[in-house]
Amino acid sequence: MRNLILLDAVYKPSDDIVARTIEGELIIVPLVAGIGDMEDDLFTLNASGNDIWRRLDGKTTVRRIIQDLAKEYAATPDAMTRDVIGLLRELLKRRMLVETRVP
């Protein structure tokens, strides 16, 4: 797995997880072993993380996600880049995301 996250890269949820919305909360359910620290871990994202996750659709570039969210949250592009890249790193580390197109 590459450590570098390019702004023109596109990501989508991995086939190794199932993302479900239960009572309005996003729950990431591992489908294969090795996603969590334990075999029975489920994961959830807070509202901001959820906003990022919804945009990881296999079509939208990281750059576009940052631009959209910076506008929506009235945040600086730098701050938003840190947040988005930070979450992408976490999700990639846990094999919850896959890159679909490398520029």
């Binding site: 871990d41 489920l42 994961f43 994202l45 807070n46 901001s48 947040d83």
Partner: peptide, 19 residues
């Protein structure tokens, strides 16, 4: 969004009862 705006955490393992 704040510095720790994204937050990935373990979800409750208890069965959820819908309200």
């Amino acid at each position: 969004m704040s510095t720790h705006a994204y937050n990935i955490r373990k979800a409750s393992r208890r069965a959820r009862r819908s309200s």
